[in-house]
């Protein structure tokens, strides 16, 4: 009995509690990210944004959620049912799963695994399946075109993202996310690796299908891309998944380049603020950049997108890997 309690039941309860403690704030954050997006873009375009439901429109996300929940889910006649339903579920759950390894403070991660960064990279590379499956299963031409675009786009930008991650790993000497953050005690990697920080940020825009790389949706030419045929909760899952992915990518940027939960300067007034607050502040900053970019830049043309990925980012990040490795070796800065 004791063995059962201490060996299985209690760990299960702890893990479930941790998961809930991670997921619930995340979902709230996703909901209010949509609100923030509308408010920020409205402010940049000198509009008011949502301001009717609740004080300052703060209840707007809840109202949207309730609306989508009560709508009817429509399955197109020619659709491949299983895959059609699986696609949004996959997108959403992948966006959630990745959070299991994100450390919000030292030791504050559900699973602090040795190959954390690879896990994140692997999960983010799986995101493309939600899009492809949705586009294919809809059995309709716009979703299919959107899915094809997105598959090519996400695979292309993953390559340069991989190189960026390798550069950071060279400076850290570990694949563990906590080690990566702790290696930035002296200086955040966004300073010495500034070009890679920029490439990484732009690649995350492409990886999350955000403006100016939102061709898979491309409402002006593809109506809404891969989720044209989706409605109600299935659509909501895509929506939530996309925004959760944005937060995830911001978290990844924070961990890799902005020193995670570390304060910007290691002395008195900064160290009083607890780590998680710093972490969330940095994530919020990166998210603001996402929204700012969306409000500012026009959409890329497809060939421009591919050119940027393969002919600019790939050679440049490859070169920077070589330069970084060479510098680390030449000056004896290799970790350990």
């Amino acid at each position: 009995m004791n063995l059962f309690w201490e060996g299985y039941a209690w760990p299960t309860i702890v893990i479930v509690a941790q998961i809930i403690a991670m997921i619930v704030p995340l979902l709230v954050a996703v909901a209010y990210l949509t609100y923030a997006e509308r408010k920020v873009i409205a402010a940049m375009q000198m509009r008011k944004g949502p301001n009717v439901v609740g004080p300052f429109g703060l209840l707007q996300p809840l109202a949207d959620g309730v609306k989508l929940l009560f709508k009817e889910t429509i399955l197109p006649a020619g659709a491949n049912r299983v895959v059609f339903i699986l696609a949004p579920v996959l997108t959403f759950s992948l966006a959630m799963v990745a959070w299991s390894v994100i450390p919000v403070d030292e030791g504050w991660a559900i699973a602090d695994i040795n190959v954390g960064i690879l896990f994140l990279f692997a999960i983010s590379s799986l995101g493309v399946y939600g899009v492809i499956m949705a586009g294919w299963a809809s059995n309709s031409k716009y979703p299919f075109l959107g899915a094809l675009r997105s598959a090519a786009q996400m695979v292309s930008y993953e390559v340069s993202m991989g190189f960026v991650i390798i550069t950071v790993l060279l400076c850290v000497g570990s694949l563990n996310l906590t080690d990566i953050v702790l290696a930035q005690r002296n200086v955040w990697f966004c300073v010495p690796l500034l070009p890679m920080f920029v490439i990484f940020f732009i690649s995350t825009l492409a990886e999350t299908n955000r403006a100016p790389f939102d061709l898979p949706e491309g409402e002006s030419e593809l109506v809404a891309g891969y989720f044209v045929e989706y409605s109600a909760m299935a659509f909501a899952l895509f929506f939530l998944g996309e925004y959760a992915n944005m937060i995830l990518m911001s978290g990844m940027t924070t961990i890799l380049f902005l020193g995670g939960w570390l304060p910007p300067l290691g002395f008195a007034p900064f160290t009083w603020i607890p780590g998680p607050i710093w972490f969330f502040a940095k994530v919020a900053l990166v998210l603001f950049l996402f929204l700012w970019v969306r409000a500012t830049f026009p959409r890329y043309r497809y060939d421009q997108l591919m050119r940027l990925g393969w002919k600019v980012f790939l050679p440049f990040s490859l070169l920077w890997v070589v330069v970084t490795a060479g510098a680390l070796l030449a000056f004896g800065w290799l970790p350990k």
Partner: peptide, 14 residues
């Protein structure tokens, strides 16, 4: 674990 992640990144992801 490294092989597992590389399997996912390379085979599944690409």
């Amino acid at each position: 674990e490294f092989l597992a992640m590389i399997l996912v990144v390379v085979y599944v992801g690409a």
